[in-house]
């Protein structure tokens, strides 16, 4: 058993975990934060996406012990215009992938602001627009089997448009 401390959604949590407990299971089963979802438990769907020190990660492939001292944000700790935009643009159906989509989108917008390129970004280091194809590529780590991709895209473009482009 290892004791770890994490700042989760603004409150410091201290918990004892075996080293083989994933961050996802620690959040869901130990801290009762079931917003991050388990869809595949192998980094293939993105439903478990949370923000760790501001970066979006797959909590299912993260061992909790590796995140000792980290700041973790799950959907329960999110208050962001994207949430309302997802409702307005119907960016979900069943809602299971939604917390991951939202956390991923928040991380994605921050990455874009910080200058992170994507596979569809033109070569070179110049500025570029956060186009629809950029958003699609950057959000491709979050599967939605209901197929709400159009609504998710609309919600993100809506909010990104308000926040301005790089």
């Amino acid at each position: 058993m290892t004791q770890i401390r994490m700042n989760v959604n603004g409150s410091v949590e201290s918990l004892d975990v075996e080293p083989w407990v994933s961050l996802l299971d620690a959040l869901r089963e130990r801290l009762g934060l079931t917003g991050p979802k388990k869809g595949c438990d192998q980094g293939a769907c993105g439903a478990c996406t949370v923000l760790a020190d501001g970066l979006r990660i797959n909590a299912c492939l993260a061992l909790a012990v590796q995140y000792d001292g980290s700041e973790i944000t799950t959907i329960e700790g999110v208050a962001h215009p994207l949430q309302e935009a997802f409702v307005r643009h119907d960016g979900f159906q069943c809602g299971y992938c939604t917390p991951g989509q939202l956390c991923s989108a928040i991380g994605m917008l921050a990455e874009y602001e910080a200058g992170m390129p994507s596979a569809v970004t033109p070569p070179g280091a110049g500025a570029y627009e956060l186009s629809e194809s950029e958003v699609r590529e950057r959000m491709s780590g979050n599967l939605c089997r209901c197929g709400a991709y159009n609504g998710i895209l609309d919600a993100i473009m809506d909010v990104a448009g308000e926040e301005g482009t790089r």
Binding site: G43, L55, R56, N58, G107, T121
Partner: peptide, 14 residues
């Protein structure tokens, strides 16, 4: 480009 074409943004952050 090779890095960005691999996995997903979440996995690349890790």
């Amino acid at each position: 480009q090779a890095v960005l074409s691999g996995a997903s943004a979440q996995l690349r952050n890790m």
